[in-house]
C-alpha cells in the first residue's frame, strides 16, 4: 500500500486514472477500519486533504462552497455557516466524536455510501450539489443522486468529489437534523431525519423538504409529507400526516442496530420533530441571513 498526497485536482485525477486499485480518502475515519477489517485493500491511498480546494469553506452572494475533504469541525465552528444551515451543522457535529470531527468530511460521509450517514439528509433537504472531478472533466450532480445503494455511488473509480455547493438560504427558512441513537454519542443513526421549510409572510409553509436516513437502502425524500406541509403552519393534523408519510416511505431492514417496526415508527416521530424545529428556526430567520 502506497500513500500519495496530490496537491491539485488534476494531479489527483491522473493518479487515479493510472492506478488500478486506488482509494481516495479525506479523514480516513471509515477507510482505516475498512482496510483493517479486510473489507478493502487498495494499492494506492490518495489523500485529498493536501488539495486546497478540497479543504476550503467559502461563501458568496449565491452559495456556500464546502470542500469535500473539509473537516466537519470547520463547519460546526463556522458561525456564519452554522447560523444559516444549523441542520447541516448539527448533522456534521453528530459524525462521531470530536476526534472524528477533526478529520471526517461531507465528501467522505457521502461517498462511504451508508444509508445512515448523518450529513446526507441534511445536505439533501438543502438542495446540495456535488462537483465531481474526473478524467473527462467536471460534472455537477445533486447529492440525492450520488449514492445509488449501500456502499455504492455514481462515481467512477477515477472520479472524486471536489466540493459541495449549497445555495444561500432565503429568509424565513430553517433546517434541522435529528437522529435516534441508543446512546447520546458515538453511534450510527438508527433513524435520521433532515427537514427544511421556508415560510411565506403569512407564516405558512411555501417550500418544504424532508429526508430520512437509515430507513432504506439510500437516504429517501418524503415527498408526500413535503406536499402536505405546503400551505400549512405544520399544525398537529398536518404533522400527523407528515409522520404517517415518513413511516410509509420507509423500506428498512432488521439489523443489529434496529428493527423494521422500530425504524418505521420512529421515522415518523423524528420527521415531525425535525419539521417543528425547522419551523421555529425559519420563524427566527426573518431576512437577516
Amino acid at each position: 500500500m502506497k500513500y500519495a498526497a496530490p496537491s491539485s485536482v488534476e494531479e489527483a485525477t491522473s493518479l487515479l486514472s493510472s492506478s488500478p486499485s486506488a482509494q481516495v480518502f479525506a479523514g480516513a475515519t471509515d477507510v482505516v477500519p475498512q482496510i483493517r477489517g479486510g473489507r478493502q485493500a487498495p494499492e494506492v491511498l490518495v489523500d485529498l486533504k493536501k488539495i486546497d480546494q478540497l479543504v476550503a469553506l467559502t461563501s458568496d452572494d449565491k452559495k456556500w462552497t464546502v470542500g469535500a475533504a473539509t473537516p466537519t469541525v470547520d463547519l460546526t465552528e463556522n458561525p456564519g455557516f452554522s447560523q444559516e444551515f444549523p441542520g447541516i451543522s448539527e448533522a456534521a457535529g453528530l459524525i462521531g466524536s470530536d476526534q472524528i470531527q477533526s478529520r471526517s468530511s461531507l465528501g467522505g460521509n457521502l461517498c462511504n455510501g451508508s444509508p445512515a450517514a448523518d450529513s446526507v439528509p441534511a445536505m439533501m433537504v438543502n438542495g446540495t450539489r456535488a462537483l465531481i472531478a474526473g478524467p473527462k472533466g467536471n460534472r455537477l450532480v445533486d447529492v440525492s443522486e450520488v449514492v445509488t445503494g449501500p456502499g455504492q455511488t455514481c462515481l467512477d473509480s477515477d472520479e472524486f468529489i471536489v466540493e459541495f455547493e449549497i445555495d444561500r438560504a432565503p429568509s424565513l427558512t430553517g433546517d434541522a437534523y435529528l437522529r435516534m441513537i441508543p446512546r447520546t454519542e458515538m453511534d450510527i443513526a438508527v433513524v435520521g431525519a433532515g427537514a427544511r421549510v421556508t415560510l411565506g409572510e403569512d407564516g405558512t409553509i411555501t417550500a418544504a423538504a424532508l429526508a430520512l436516513g437509515a430507513v432504506a437502502p439510500t437516504v429517501v425524500r418524503v415527498t408526500a409529507a413535503e406536499e402536505a406541509l405546503i400551505g400549512t403552519t405544520a399544525d398537529e393534523d398536518t404533522l400527523a400526516v407528515v409522520a404517517a408519510a415518513a413511516s410509509e416511505v420507509c423500506n428498512p431492514i432488521d439489523d443489529k442496530r434496529g428493527t423494521i417496526g422500530y425504524r418505521e415508527q420512529v421515522a415518523g416521530v423524528l420527521a415531525k420533530r425535525a419539521v417543528l424545529i425547522a419551523m421555529e428556526r425559519a420563524q427566527q430567520r426573518n431576512g437577516n441571513v
Binding site: 479523514g27 475515519t29 491511498l45 473537516p71 466524536s97 476526534q99 478529520r103
Partner: peptide, 9 residues
Amino acid sequence: RVTCSCLVF
C-alpha cells in the same frame, strides 16, 4: 486538533 492517531496513516 484532537485526533484518533489510530485513524491517521
